[in-house]
Design a protein around this nucleic acid. Structure first.
Lengths: 254, 254
DNA sequence: CGGGGGTTTGAGTCCGTTCAAAATACGTGG
DNA sequence: CCACGTATTTTGAACGGACTCAAACCCCCG
């Protein structure tokens, strides 16, 4: 078995960069996360039981095929989820930003990890062991309901993504991706120019959108020639949001 | 507001064909369904509280945009789920066969129905009201966990579908659909010829696979010319399973 | 018998891919 | 800090799969 697919304990021993413990109470993503239904006592129990790690860019949280030992919660940084098929070519299936819980699907589905998770930037990620989760679920039934709500929403998103993939051209999908990244990776300048910092490489964008890197390069150029968005490395400048929004509606004219 | 999108109570009064009550205890899909975690007393309570209806082919269980009033459980027949975008063109997003619970996603996500559900054949479908579900969830915490498991599996499937849509040609997708339908709509003849009865029309197949009807017609012809499968109306004969399976692997050669 | 929706066929076009090569960015060691 | 090797990104030309548009066909139903 290749190094890439070996099974190791989670989290790996070498993952701990400058790993101070991150408190659940001060965690920025707390309010939006599933864990917010826990009361103070329960949250304190979770806080002491969880494991906290800092991953350098490129480090892997877990590999596809690994048994699912618990749930991960992103505190800072950006994590990419990839899936490899039997022939080895991997596909980007999602991005996780701070506050997001990942790996819950495999955990509740009693399956091993269907994706690999890799830190894109230096990231602080907490690991909550299965036993700890069991205790939390027993102590607070609403937690299960929250995860059910989360799963339902993700399911909706996945279905939307499938439809988009089936019906929208790549240019629309790229525009959609930029708009999705705008909220958490974008800053609006005083001059009204939106600047978005792309968290992933061009070929990862291609993989995520179901396209070839060449096509992405060409589409990027086309957007620039039409004055919609301007790319410099991983920085995108959008002088006006409306033309970008128009890219999405192309399917809805009819 | 057009007739198509009007909001009505679920289930509609005109849905009851020859609607005898279907017992949860004798329901064929019971064992595989989420409700199987209920004990006898709980199941009896569910059985008396649920509403049972028979829908004729073409009748609609609920419309996209309707508030979600509960969960539906298919007892017999076949149900198609469609989603319409703002410009009116609808897309097939899934099929539900006996034993399947539908509408649970919107219910747990606290959203209104994101799809319309239509009976393809005469179907018996049970409706479980939100209040009844609440009582079941309170009485049996494992029920929530079962739905969480179900949601996790569906999420996995949705992600797989997205990847397939992005990477596989239509011919592979059609082959995949036939293989998926084989288990519940296929019969193996004594001569080793597999016969599959398609539950949906060509244009619904096209919609489901993210293609045009013309493309499906051409692809069907191509499969026939290659001796993989032979179509007559809604009946498909597959003389040998191996060539059909080979269609899937096309992406995994590399 | 005459619609009318669904399906099929044909011809032409376009979007995205493939293959190949050049250009640029990146990391690493000297 | 620069030089070098590697990986990523970009560009170009040719190909191909799926789409569009249009017409014929079919089958069911009134």
């Amino acid at each position: 078995m290749s190094e890439k697919f070996r099974i190791h304990q989670s989290p790996p021993a070498d993952a701990c960069g400058g790993c101070g413990h991150v408190s659940c109470f001060t965690c920025g993503g707390k309010d939006g996360s599933e864990w917010s239904v826990l009361n103070e006592e329960q949250l304190r129990a979770l806080d002491t039981a969880k494991t906290c790690n800092t991953y350098r860019a490129g480090q892997v949280l877990f590999y596809q095929g690994n048994p699912c030992l618990g749930i991960y919660c992103v505190e800072s940084g950006e994590v990419v989820l990839r899936r490899a098929d039997e022939s080895g070519n991997s596909v980007v299936v999602g991005l996780a930003h701070p506050g997001r819980t990942i790996g819950y699907r495999c955990f509740f589905g009693n399956q091993s990890h269907s994706t690999s998770a890799e830190a894109l930037t230096e990231s602080r990620v907490c690991f909550i062991d299965r036993e700890v989760i069991r205790k939390c679920l027993d102590a607070e039934p609403r937690l299960g309901m929250r995860f059910l709500k989360r799963a339902s929403e993700d399911l909706q998103d996945a279905e939307d993504a499938r439809i988009e993939m089936a019906t929208q051209p790549i240019r629309s999908r790229l525009a959609h991706l930029l708009l999705a990244l705008k909220d958490r990776r974008g800053t609006m300048g005083a001059d009204g120019v939106l600047t978005i910092e792309l968290p992933i490489s061009r070929q990862d964008i291609a993989s995520y959108l179901g396209a070839r890197p060449e096509t992405i390069a060409r589409t990027v150029r086309a957007l620039e020639e039409d004055g919609v968005a301007f790319f410099e490395g991983r920085t995108v400048r959008v002088p006006d949001l409306d033309p970008l929004l128009d890219e999405l509606e192309s399917a809805g004219i009819d």
